[in-house]
Amino acid sequence: MIPQVDPRASYREDKALLDAAVLRVLDSGMYIMGQEVEAFEAEFAAWIGARHGIAVANGTQAVEIALRSVGVGAGDLVLTVSHTAVATAAAIRACGAEPVWVDVADGHFTMDVGLLDETAATLRAGPDGARLKAVVAVHLYGAMVEPGPLLEVCRRHELKLVEDCAQAHGAAWDGKRAGSFGDASAFSFYPTKNLGALGDGGMVCTSDDAAAELARLIRQYGWKERYISAIEGINSRLDPVQAAILRIGLVRLEERNQRRRAIAALYDAGLTGGAITTPAVPAPLTHAYHQYVVRTTDRDGLAARLRAEGVGTGIHYPVPVHAQPAYLGRFDRHCRTLRNTEAVAADILSLPMYPQLTHDDARRVTDLIRKFQGA
Rank of each mutant, 00 (worst) to 15 (best):
residue 245 I to P: 00
residue 160 K to S: 02
residue 315 I to E: 14
residue 46 A to C: 00
residue 72 V to Y: 11
residue 1 M to H: 14
residue 14 D to H: 15
residue 122 T to F: 01
residue 249 G to R: 14
residue 250 L to P: 06
residue 338 L to R: 00
residue 375 A to D: 13
residue 155 R to V: 00
residue 249 G to Q: 14
residue 39 A to D: 12
residue 142 G to E: 12
residue 151 L to K: 09
residue 366 T to D: 05
residue 328 L to V: 11
residue 198 L to H: 10
residue 340 N to C: 03
residue 69 S to R: 05
residue 204 V to A: 10
residue 118 E to I: 10
residue 10 S to K: 15
residue 32 I to T: 09
residue 42 A to G: 00
residue 256 R to N: 12
residue 356 Q to G: 12
residue 126 G to N: 07
residue 146 E to W: 09
residue 294 V to D: 11
residue 81 V to Y: 01
residue 140 L to K: 08
residue 231 I to V: 15
residue 150 L to S: 07
residue 174 D to I: 01
residue 193 K to Y: 06
residue 146 E to D: 15
residue 20 A to P: 07
residue 85 A to G: 11
residue 98 E to Y: 06
residue 97 A to V: 10
residue 370 R to Y: 04
residue 194 N to C: 12
residue 118 E to V: 10
residue 224 K to G: 13
residue 362 A to P: 04
residue 113 V to G: 01
residue 57 A to S: 15
residue 4 Q to E: 14
residue 22 V to L: 06
residue 359 H to D: 15
residue 369 I to M: 04
residue 281 V to K: 11
residue 114 G to E: 05
residue 68 R to S: 09
residue 305 R to Y: 15
residue 222 G to L: 05
residue 174 D to W: 10
residue 107 G to Y: 07
residue 371 K to L: 07
residue 84 T to S: 15
residue 52 H to P: 03
residue 90 A to N: 14
residue 297 T to Y: 08
residue 350 S to V: 12
residue 315 I to L: 11
residue 217 L to F: 07
residue 62 A to I: 13
residue 21 A to L: 04
residue 4 Q to L: 07
residue 261 R to F: 10
residue 333 R to A: 15
residue 236 S to D: 05
residue 125 A to T: 02
residue 233 G to N: 09
residue 33 M to D: 13
residue 340 N to K: 07
residue 33 M to Q: 09
residue 272 T to Y: 02
residue 91 A to P: 09
residue 32 I to F: 07
residue 207 S to E: 06
residue 32 I to A: 00
residue 280 A to I: 11
residue 374 G to C: 09
residue 202 G to I: 05
residue 219 R to G: 04
residue 126 G to T: 05
residue 356 Q to F: 11
residue 221 Y to P: 00
residue 128 D to I: 01
residue 63 V to G: 06
residue 223 W to F: 14
residue 51 R to M: 04
residue 104 V to D: 07
residue 122 T to S: 13
residue 40 F to I: 03
residue 354 Y to E: 07
residue 205 C to S: 06
residue 192 T to N: 13
residue 142 G to N: 11
residue 34 G to L: 01
residue 94 A to M: 04
residue 38 E to S: 13
residue 43 E to I: 02
residue 246 L to K: 03
residue 264 A to N: 08
residue 107 G to C: 01
residue 280 A to K: 14
residue 357 L to Y: 12
residue 75 G to E: 13
residue 94 A to C: 04
residue 20 A to V: 04
residue 208 D to Q: 01
residue 201 G to C: 02
residue 143 A to R: 07
residue 247 R to H: 02
residue 156 R to F: 08
residue 163 E to P: 00
residue 103 D to W: 06
residue 350 S to Q: 12
residue 257 N to V: 15
residue 144 M to D: 08
residue 285 L to Q: 15
residue 309 E to S: 14
residue 319 V to S: 12
residue 32 I to W: 03
residue 5 V to L: 05
residue 128 D to V: 06
residue 30 M to T: 14
residue 299 R to I: 04
residue 55 A to R: 11
residue 170 G to V: 09
residue 13 E to Q: 14
residue 294 V to E: 09
residue 110 T to F: 09
